[in-house]
Every structure is written in structure tokens, then in C-alpha cells.
């Protein structure tokens, strides 16, 4: 494989990872931007999306039907959680949010373990999503991952359209900047919040169901990606969809390239044995270093949302 092809393919890998992070980050940052709510349990909806879709695919025997049912299910679970548990917490400080949703993580992980067991489950992908695409000579890129990239970009574009061009988006933006005002104008803010929360959960569910066939479906799968998602939204600027998008791609690419090239790069500078031990350690810390760096320069992230 020529070096340029390798770098290009690794970039593509980074973009694909970034897109998954974006789907997670979008919902989280939306909820934060509008309700000023910190949801640690966002990863649980990623997990719920994967499990519900898997169950629905097995029940209906149809992948597309399963995806639709799974997304609808995640949306409903999200709205239910918002109404039952989280709604009362909006007025509280972030500390209470962190703790209550920490409790939700424990609950959902264990609940999933009770229902589906702790065994890792296989999430088969339909025949038409298998195989490879040759983006250019010599590269064999998995078709499924290419589809993930496209879906992610499409969702990003769709989100941009909804938030900037529709009435719902207008309400969302208005709700973010002045809650009392839009409530006075007769908008049902409670309902708006519930819908937005459920919608954010469904986005996480989408990331989860797309992750299912690549990764494993298991209780606690959400927490494996959650911390990286937080890094994304902090880099991007809390509450900013645009920031989440840029931050996600940045983190995805930096993490992937770091894993691929940092050790060989270090080996040209220090002894190979030293590079062997320093490389992997540094690669795992890279995104946190990136975050510290961004915050040192821009304490509110790359795209601070206005009014906050």
C-alpha cells in the first residue's frame, strides 16, 4: 500500500469514528444548550438504541423495520426518563444533574443485564451492507463504514437545517436564549424540552445501533465512548451543534492518527524501545491533551454558544 493511500485511509477511519462521536455529541450538546442540563446517562441511550434495535430486527426479521422501531423505542424511553426523573432537575445546578444521571447509568446497565444477560450479543448486519468499496486503487474500505460516514454527514446536515430553517428550530434557539420569554409567548416549554430530550436520545440510539455491528453489544457499552464524547463537546463549545461537529471530527482524526502514526513517529526521534512504551500511553492521552490545549487557548471551546 503506498504511503499516501495509507494516510488517506487512516483519515477516513478518523472521519468515521468522528461521525459516530458526532451523533452522540449532537444530542448531548443540544440538551445542554437548551435545558442547561448535563446528562451523563447519554451513553445509556446509545446502549438502549443498540439493544432495542437488535431486538426489533430479530422480532420483525427486517433490518429497516428494526431500525425504525429501535429509534422510536429509544425516543420513547428518553422522553419517559425526562418526564419521570429529570424534568424536576433542570432548575438545579450541574452537580445534581451529574449525580442523578450517574444513578441512571447504574440502573440502565444493570437493567439491560437482567433483560438480555451480560453476554455480549452479535448484531448481524444485512447482506446488502457487507462487502467493500474501492475508493481508489488499492484501498479496500468496508462498505458499512462508508455508509456510517454518509448517514452521519446526512444527519449533521439535517440537524443544521432543522435548527436554522424550521419553526421547531426557531423555538429551540429561542428556548435556549430565553426560556421565560417563549413561555410567555404561549409555547409549551415543558413539551418542547421533552421532545428535544427524546430527540437527543434517539440520535444517541442511532449511533448505538450503527455501532452494534462493528463493536459488541453489551451492558455498559455506552460508557466506553461517553468520556470521548464529553471531550468532543467541551472542545467544540457546549451547546453548539457546529462545535460538536468540528470537535467530533477533530477528536476522531487526532485519536485515529495518533494510534496509527505516533509510535512510528516517536521511534524516529527516540529509541524504538522507548517509543514502544511511550507511544501507546501518549496515544491514549492525546485527546485529553488536545482538550487541555484548546481550553487553555479558548476556555469556552472552539464555538462558544451565545448567551451563555
Amino acid at each position: 500500500m503506498p504511503p499516501l493511500t495509507l494516510v488517506f485511509e487512516q483519515l477516513l477511519n478518523g472521519v468515521q469514528f468522528g461521525v459516530m462521536l458526532f451523533l452522540m455529541a449532537a444530542g448531548l450538546t443540544l440538551v445542554f444548550g437548551i435545558m442547561n442540563f448535563v446528562n451523563l446517562a447519554h451513553g445509556s441511550f446509545y446502549m438502549i438504541g443498540a439493544y432495542l434495535t437488535l431486538a426489533a430486527v430479530q422480532w420483525s426479521g427486517n433490518y429497516i423495520a428494526g431500525v425504525v422501531l429501535g429509534l422510536a423505542g429509544t425516543l420513547l424511553v428518553g422522553m419517559l426518563v425526562e418526564v419521570v426523573a429529570l424534568r424536576t432537575l433542570y432548575a438545579r445546578d450541574h452537580l445534581d444533574h451529574v449525580l442523578a444521571t450517574f444513578g441512571l447509568i447504574l440502573f440502565f446497565n444493570e437493567l439491560v443485564a437482567i433483560i438480555w444477560g451480560r453476554t455480549l450479543l452479535d448484531f448481524p448486519r444485512p447482506e446488502w451492507l457487507r462487502g467493500h468499496v474501492e475508493i481508489f486503487a488499492g484501498s479496500r474500505y468496508p462498505f458499512y463504514r462508508a455508509v456510517v460516514i454518509l448517514v452521519g454527514l446526512a444527519v449533521g446536515a439535517g440537524l443544521w437545517y432543522v435548527v436554522t430553517r424550521t419553526r421547531l428550530g426557531m423555538l429551540i434557539r429561542a428556548g435556549a436564549s430565553n426560556r421565560t420569554m417563549i413561555a410567555a409567548l404561549g409555547v409549551n416549554v415543558r413539551l418542547l424540552y421533552t421532545v428535544v430530550f427524546g430527540f437527543g436520545c434517539a440520535l444517541a440510539g442511532l449511533a448505538g445501533l450503527m455501532a452494534g455491528p462493528i463493536y459488541a453489544v453489551l451492558p455498559g457499552m455506552g460508557e466506553m465512548i461517553l468520556i470521548q464524547v464529553f471531550v468532543v463537546i467541551v472542545i467544540g463549545g457546549l451547546g453548539s451543534i457546529r462545535g460538536a461537529f468540528v470537535g467530533a471530527l477533530l477528536v476522531g482524526i487526532v485519536d485515529t492518527l495518533g494510534r496509527a502514526f505516533l509510535r512510528p513517529l516517536l521511534a524516529t526521534m527516540i529509541s524504538p524501545t522507548a517509543a514502544d512504551s511511550a507511544g501507546p500511553a501518549l496515544a491514549s492521552m492525546l485527546i485529553y491533551l488536545l482538550m487541555a490545549l484548546v481550553l487553555a487557548v479558548r476556555p469556552e471551546g472552539l464555538f462558544p454558544s451565545r448567551g451563555r
Binding site: Q10, N13, R140, M221, R259
Partner: peptide, 21 residues
């Protein structure tokens, strides 16, 4: 080559691409 990945890592596409090369 001898490659060590992050403990608990979920996505190995980058490593697999390196391996193929």
C-alpha cells in the same frame, strides 16, 4: 511489528489498516 492498543479500546480500524499496509 508489535503494537499495543489502549486498554478497553472499541474501534480497531486504524490498527487493522496499519496491519494491512
Amino acid at each position: 511489528d508489535e503494537v499495543y492498543t489502549r486498554f478497553g479500546q472499541t474501534d480497531y480500524q486504524a490498527e487493522i489498516t496499519q496491519l494491512r499496509s
